[in-house]
């Protein structure tokens, strides 16, 4: 089975005036479908940059980023937006639900952009996802009317809207209390059991330990790449 993620000698630096600030050095990484990868490391060492490259939000200075068969650096911004909608589900630390749409509409939004299902099918899938994350009763609520944990669960449902092969989460429990974080973690575990590939940046050690693979980044390089809890 081909790898879902292939990074090959990827470099990334940011220009700050006359100075080039390298963030990622010679990153080569392969991820097979169904893996749950936790990316850990101190702040400012390139974790979020790596996630941005995997989702096409940023482009490498050198190297190849291939996700689900697509070489991202060859796609235009328009193509990347469309590709992202269909191939990647992103879960943010601060939920980032649109405040003027209710929970159901937030989940419908990526499906409206992708336009691969008809209206009835979109509604059915949205309701299914709401049920999956345990938010059936909150469908008509606005984000401002529900708790942080509920918002994050809604965000996860939104990330799953177009049934992407890859889920990317940046500190998904960073803004939640312990109990809520556990509930969200359980959701992620469920997703992995369903065969989704999960890439998660986290400072939460218990979450990191629950992953099947742990990659530690330090000073922009892969310092450690360890398989954990591998089945079989």
């Amino acid at each position: 089975m081909p790898n879902i993620i292939e990074l090959s000698h990827v470099y990334k630096a940011y220009q700050l005036g006359p100075i080039s600030n390298p963030v990622l050095h010679d990153i080569s990484l392969s991820v097979t479908p169904g893996e749950f990868v936790a990316i850990v490391g101190p702040s400012g060492n390139g974790k979020s940059t790596l996630l941005n490259l995997l989702t096409g939000i940023d482009r490498p200075c050198q190297g190849d980023v291939q996700i689900n068969g697509s070489h991202l650096q060859r796609l235009s911004e328009e193509q990347l937006s469309a590709w992202r909608g269909k191939n990647v589900g992103i879960v943010f630390q601060f939920f980032q639900l649109l405040p003027s749409l209710n929970i159901l509409q937030n989940i419908l939004l990526p499906m409206d952009f992708a336009a691969t299902l008809n209206k009835r099918q979109r509604l059915e899938r949205a309701r299914y996802l709401l049920n999956l994350v345990g938010l059936d009763d909150q469908a008509q609520q606005l984000p401002g009317q529900v708790s942080g944990g509920q918002q994050q669960r809604a965000a996860i449902a939104r990330a799953l809207a177009n049934d992407p092969a890859l889920i990317v989460a940046d500190e998904p429990t960073g803004n939640l209390d312990g109990t809520t974080a556990d509930a969200v973690f359980e959701l992620f575990a469920n997703l992995q059991r369903q065969g989704k590939t999960l890439i998660m940046v986290t400072h939460n050690e218990s979450l990191a330990q629950a992953a099947s693979r742990r990659i530690a980044l330090f000073a922009g390089r892969i310092h450690e790449d360890q398989y954990l809890n591998r089945a079989g």
């Binding site: 328009e78 992202r84 909608g85 980032q96 952009f113």
Partner: peptide
């Protein structure tokens, strides 16, 4: 930020 979130979940320029 909202615009970027929309981009992140698949919104094209036309949207």
């Amino acid at each position: 930020r909202e615009i970027c979130v929309l981009r992140a979940i698949g919104a094209r320029s036309s949207a």
